Amino acid sequence: MNIEDIGDYCLSVDDVTEKTPFGKFARRYDSILVFYVLDHMFCFADMDDFTSVTVKSTPDEVD
């Protein structure tokens, strides 16, 4: 899986948008791509160093 696949999957969900909001804090964070559903972050990954993806979840959903 690559960053394009993650992006396509996340954007296939209703009301999802993507942004790179962390660059305003430091230039080195320009490559962090964040996906939001109804203005709440739920997934992010580094576009330049795609070694992991972080997904927000509740403990019950993880189990």
Rank of each mutant, 00 (worst) to 15 (best):
D8V: 06
V55Q: 00
K19R: 14
D14W: 06
D48M: 04
T58G: 08
V34D: 08
F50A: 02
C43Y: 02
D15Q: 14
D46K: 03
G7M: 05
L11V: 09
C43G: 00
I32W: 08
T58V: 04
Y29E: 00
E4R: 07
T17E: 15
Y36C: 03
D48Y: 03
P59H: 06
Y29D: 06
F25G: 04
V34P: 05
D63T: 06
D8S: 12
I6Q: 06
Y36I: 01
I32C: 04
F35T: 02
S31C: 11
F50S: 01
C43R: 02
S52F: 15
E18H: 04
S31F: 07
V16M: 10
T20I: 05
V16P: 07
K56P: 01
F25W: 14
G7H: 09
A45H: 06
D48N: 11
V62F: 11
T54R: 05
D60R: 09
T54H: 07
D63L: 10
T51S: 13
D48F: 01
V34Q: 11
E4F: 04
S12K: 13
G7F: 00
C43I: 02
T17F: 05
F44S: 04
H40I: 13
F22R: 06
S31T: 15
F42T: 01
A26L: 13
V37N: 13
F35E: 05
P21T: 07
M1Y: 09
E4G: 01
Y29I: 01
I32M: 14
D46A: 00
E18D: 13
S31G: 10
T20F: 08
K24L: 07
M41N: 08
Y36G: 02
S52W: 15
H40V: 13
L33M: 15
E4K: 12
Y9R: 10
I6P: 03
F44D: 12
S52Y: 15
M47G: 03
P21L: 06
T54K: 08
K56Q: 10
M1S: 07
Y9N: 08
